[in-house]
Computed example of a mutant assay.
Amino acid sequence: MPQRFDLIVFDWDGTLFDSTALIVRCMQAAATDLGLEPPSRERAAYVIGMGLIEALQYALPGLDRARYPELGQRYRHHYFASAHEVTLFDGVPGLLQDLKARHHWLAVATGKSRRGLDEALAAVQMKSLFDGTRTADETAGKPNPQMLLELMREFGAEPERTLMIGDTTHDLQLARNAGCPAIAVTYGAHEHESLRGFEPLLVAHDVPTLRDWLLTHA
């Protein structure tokens, strides 16, 4: 059966990496450090996938703009101190290896910083599985389509042959803005109902379901 997609692009946090709870906890801790009322779990989780400063501005609105970089520093302090506590979702390494064996190009498009992604890839020893990566601090953050458009140009992939996979509405809007089909996963940051509204090709509730669909339809 001919392959439908040449390039498969994954979000990182909440899609491949089980880090949603850690991100929420670190955002709340950063707010406490600055004497601010911490955001709720729902508000903090909603921003996962955005660039850090944009995420903090949403999670903690009304703060003097000059203080967001300081808040970002405190977030990074807590995150990098605890990043070793989380890992890939069960089944992710096998899924990626299966897709590589089928000769898909694999990439990551993430709201993380370059440092954050590189350290995460090194920690789980997965860097060699990805052909390309883009982070929010080296291009535009989601849902701006720039990072996905750059990856498509890098590999000469057409939008209809590029698949975006993510756990947030930001990921799905990114795909829509770039003219690409998408898959939503519900085991990360955003709820099923908000994801389904984007009409993804699949709403996967776990990694085995995602793997089965990709190996059959991608």
Rank of each mutant, 00 (worst) to 15 (best):
F130R: 07
A140I: 08
E119R: 07
L117E: 07
R114S: 14
L129C: 02
D118N: 14
A123F: 01
A120C: 09
K112E: 13
S128L: 09
A123Y: 00
T139I: 06
S113V: 12
L121T: 04
G111N: 13
E119F: 01
G116I: 01
G132P: 08
T135M: 03
D131F: 05
M126R: 04
T139Y: 03
V124W: 01
S113I: 11
S113N: 09
D118G: 09
E138K: 10
F130V: 02
L117W: 08
D131I: 10
M126H: 02
A120N: 10
D137T: 04
A123C: 01
Q125I: 00
G116K: 09
G111P: 13
Q125T: 04
T135A: 09
Q125D: 14
L117S: 10
T133A: 05
T110Q: 14
R114K: 14
V124E: 02
K112M: 12
M126V: 10
A120I: 08
S128D: 15
E119Y: 00
E138W: 07
M126Y: 01
F130M: 07
F130D: 02
V124T: 10
T139K: 07
A123R: 11
L129F: 09
D118Q: 14
S128V: 12
T110L: 12
A136K: 06
S113E: 13
D137H: 07
G132L: 05
T139Q: 06
R114W: 09
T139A: 11
G132K: 05
G116C: 09
K127T: 11
V124Y: 00
V124M: 01
K127M: 02
K112V: 12
K112C: 12
D118S: 13
V124C: 08
T135C: 14
R114N: 11
T133G: 02
G132Q: 06
R134M: 10
L117P: 08
E138Q: 13
K127V: 05
A140T: 10
G111I: 13
S128C: 03
D118T: 09
E138C: 09
A123W: 00
A120G: 09
K112R: 15
L121D: 02
S128T: 15
A136C: 07
R114V: 15
L121M: 13
M126D: 00
A122K: 12
T133H: 04
L129R: 11
R134S: 05
T110E: 15
R115W: 13
G116D: 08
L117K: 11
D131E: 12
L121N: 04
T133R: 06
D131M: 04
T133N: 05
